[in-house]
Amino acid sequence: MKLLTYRSEEQLRTGLLTEKGILPLPHSMDEIIQGGTSLLDELKHMAASGTIQDLLQEQEIRFGPCVPRPGKIICVGLNYRKHAEESKMPIPEYPVLFNKFDNTVAAHQDEILLPAHSKQVDYEAELAIVIGKTAKNVDKEEALDYVFGYCAANDLSARDLQFRTNQWLLGKCCDGFCPLGPYLVTADEVGNPNELGIRSYVNGELRQNSNTADMIFACDEIVSYLSQHMTLHPGDVILTGTPEGVILGYPEEKRVWLREGDEVTIEIDRLGRLSNRMKQEM
Rank of each mutant, 00 (worst) to 15 (best):
99 N>W: 08
187 A>L: 04
183 Y>T: 00
90 P>W: 09
48 A>M: 09
75 C>E: 10
168 W>D: 15
237 V>W: 02
17 L>P: 02
247 I>D: 02
218 A>R: 15
132 G>K: 01
25 L>H: 13
36 G>F: 00
178 C>D: 09
215 M>L: 13
188 D>E: 13
109 Q>E: 15
236 D>I: 04
154 N>Q: 11
101 F>K: 06
72 K>Y: 01
90 P>S: 12
58 E>C: 07
19 E>I: 13
229 H>E: 05
155 D>F: 01
233 H>C: 08
175 D>V: 13
258 L>G: 04
6 Y>V: 05
156 L>T: 03
44 K>G: 10
187 A>M: 04
213 A>F: 02
19 E>R: 13
198 I>L: 15
44 K>Y: 03
94 Y>R: 04
30 D>N: 13
265 T>M: 08
243 P>R: 08
220 D>F: 05
46 M>P: 13
89 M>Q: 12
110 D>T: 02
126 E>H: 06
151 C>S: 14
179 P>T: 03
77 G>Y: 01
6 Y>P: 08
245 G>N: 08
262 D>E: 11
51 T>I: 09
218 A>C: 14
171 G>I: 06
225 Y>N: 07
106 A>Q: 04
70 P>G: 14
119 K>E: 03
26 P>A: 05
205 E>L: 10
78 L>G: 07
183 Y>I: 00
21 G>W: 11
